[in-house]
Every structure is written in structure tokens, then in C-alpha cells.
Design a protein around this nucleic acid. Structure first.
Length: 295
DNA sequence: CTCCTTTGACCGTCG
DNA sequence: CCGACGGTCAAAGGA
């Protein structure tokens, strides 16, 4: 497969996160028991928002049953669409109540859409996992990263024809920041970029690789991103520097950026997996780099 | 020489 | 307990 095949084209999103813009969301008279969710949301992403009226953004709630048993809470922001997965402490009844409220809201606001399914949110969250934020990016957006990363692993993930590439911050060995890049199984024009951990240092200023992130490599895949599907490789399992040669020739040498986080940007998705601290009080912590994107 | 990538092996978590 | 799976390690090789 030629590298030109990875050029960004108009993406036809098949997932259910696409929703119309400029729709006023229904007022959600949420149950007190869910305040933690929205407090977390407000704290993180919408500190000035006190209700859901008069918003240009669309807010919705997604409650995948798959997460009922999981220990982590998730807050999902997709472009102007926001979906919050409530804490796993949320009871089924509370979910039903919320669904009813959403139904009411949908009746009042026909253009407001929401889903009770979130097929995109199929990430397995684990104990001790810190915040994970996933962006849905086009290829040319992958080069926008102020950080330097080193690839330390690659895996083919179940139910996805594309391998997942693992990166760690190369600026400091003590830095716990991690990054994962994979192609969306739903749309090969879209890359799912996940960040976890926090940088414990300032962004690199004199990056050796900065130059190579410029023009010539623009719109090319970052170096090391190997996203050829299984079916196009000799062996389905991991392997082969042969494939790597293919991308190396055209890729930008390093992924060097935290992608822009902005409401209103098209085709952005953010998934924040929040670690359950075990005391029943989830704590949403995000580093400043992440929050900057919402200013 | 240094840094980065590759890739099989290993480990921890989950069901 | 065990297998599946995701994530990480580390030696080797390349740029």
C-alpha cells in the first residue's frame, strides 16, 4: 500500500458520534446522584456552564452497558458533542431515569440527538490506569505535538485490522506520559490518538527533530506509525521491519505534539478515562496541557 | 556515538 | 485456575 493512500480525504464518519451542529441541547434536570459526573465535567471542560440551555454545543449522555461493571469513569467529548459516561456507581435505575430525561429533552429539541450506545467507547480500562484521553485525528493533525515521543511497542488489537503503536515521552525517562496511535477500525482516514499520564517537565524547546516535523513531512505519517492492516502484511502477527521501511521513508521523524483541543474543531473526539481512586470519589485530574485546549 | 525503532517475550488484568 | 488480551520491556539493529 502506497503512502499516498494515507493522505487525508474527506472522512465519512460511520460512527454514531456525528451530530448536527448548532443545536440547543435540552435542559437536563439531572439527578443528584449524578452530580459527580457533571461536576467533573464542569470542572474539566465547562467551568462556566451551569446548565445546558442556550448552548451552541451539543451535550448528550452515553451509557454503554459494557461499562456497568468497570471501575473507571469516562467523560467523552467529541467535537461539539459531549457524552458523559457516568460513574460505575450509577445504578441502572439512575440510568433509566437519565434516559427518560433525555427522551423528554429529545422530544423538546428534535434536532438534539443522543445515543444509548457508544460503540466507539470500547477501550478496556484497567485498574491503576490514569486518565486516558483519546483524540480522533486526521493524518495531518498527527504532526501537531509539542512533545517528543519514542515508540516502545506495537500490537495488533483484537477486533481491529490495524496495529496500535505505543509511544513514551522521550524527553525524560522519568516522564510517565504515554501515547498510543492507531487507525480507527471504522474509518481508516481517522487516527485514534490516546494520551495517558502526565508530563512532569516542560515541553522540549530545542528539539532535535523539530526541523523534520516541518514542511517536508507535513501531511505524512509520523515516524514509526505502522498502521498497515493485518491483511496487507505477510504475517498477521506483529512483525517485520519490512513494513516499517515503507512508512519510514515518508514519515515525519517524530510525533511532536499534543494535538489541538478545541470545541468546534471538527472530528475531534476525546475520551478521558478517569481512575477510580477507590474511595468512591472519583477524581478527575488533567494536566494543564490538556486543559489549555479548552480555553 | 546517540537516539530511535523493531519485535518477540514477558507481565498484569480481566472474564 | 486459565486463557485472552493489552501494555511494557529490552536486546538488536538502523539512521
Amino acid at each position: 500500500m502506497g503512502d499516498d493512500d494515507w493522505d487525508v480525504g474527506a472522512a465519512v464518519r460511520s460512527c454514531n458520534i456525528n451530530r448536527p451542529d448548532n443545536v440547543v441541547a435540552p435542559k437536563l434536570d439531572l439527578e443528584t446522584s449524578l452530580n459527580d459526573v457533571w461536576n467533573s465535567f464542569d470542572k474539566l471542560f465547562a467551568p462556566d456552564i451551569t446548565n445546558f440551555n442556550d448552548l451552541s454545543e451539543i451535550f448528550s449522555l452515553d451509557f454503554p452497558t459494557a461499562h456497568q461493571e468497570k471501575p473507571d469513569d469516562q467523560v467523552i467529548i467529541m467535537n461539539q458533542n459531549v457524552a458523559c459516561v457516568p460513574p460505575t456507581t450509577t445504578t441502572p435505575k439512575e440510568w433509566i431515569d437519565l434516559q427518560q430525561q433525555l427522551d423528554i429533552g429529545a422530544n423538546n429539541y428534535p434536532n438534539f440527538t443522543f445515543s444509548m450506545e457508544t460503540p466507539l467507547i470500547q477501550t478496556r480500562t484497567r485498574k491503576n490506569q490514569s486518565i486516558r484521553i483519546t483524540y480522533e485525528l486526521f493524518q495531518e493533525e498527527l504532526t501537531n505535538d509539542i512533545w517528543t515521543w519514542s515508540k516502545y511497542g506495537q500490537k495488533y488489537i483484537k477486533d481491529s485490522p490495524f496495529p496500535r503503536n505505543y509511544y513514551m515521552c522521550s524527553t525524560s525517562k522519568l516522564c510517565e506520559a504515554r501515547k498510543k496511535i492507531e487507525k480507527s477500525p471504522n474509518d481508516e482516514n481517522i487516527f485514534l490518538v490516546s494520551y495517558s499520564g502526565e508530563h512532569n517537565h516542560d515541553p522540549p524547546t530545542n528539539r532535535r527533530n523539530l526541523a523534520s516535523c516541518n514542511s517536508s513531512s507535513k501531511f505524512k505519517l509520523p515516524k514509526g506509525i505502522n498502521i498497515l492492516p493485518k491483511t496487507s502484511t505477510l504475517n498477521a502477527s506483529s512483525s517485520s521491519s519490512k513494513r516499517i521501511k515503507c512508512s519510514r521513508d515518508v514519515a515525519s521523524p517524530i510525533i511532536t505534539t499534543m494535538p489541538p483541543l478545541e470545541f468546534g474543531n471538527k472530528n475531534k473526539m476525546i475520551v478521558a478515562a478517569v481512575e477510580d481512586k477507590g474511595d468512591g470519589k472519583e477524581e478527575v485530574g488533567m494536566n494543564e496541557d490538556i486543559l489549555m485546549g479548552f480555553e
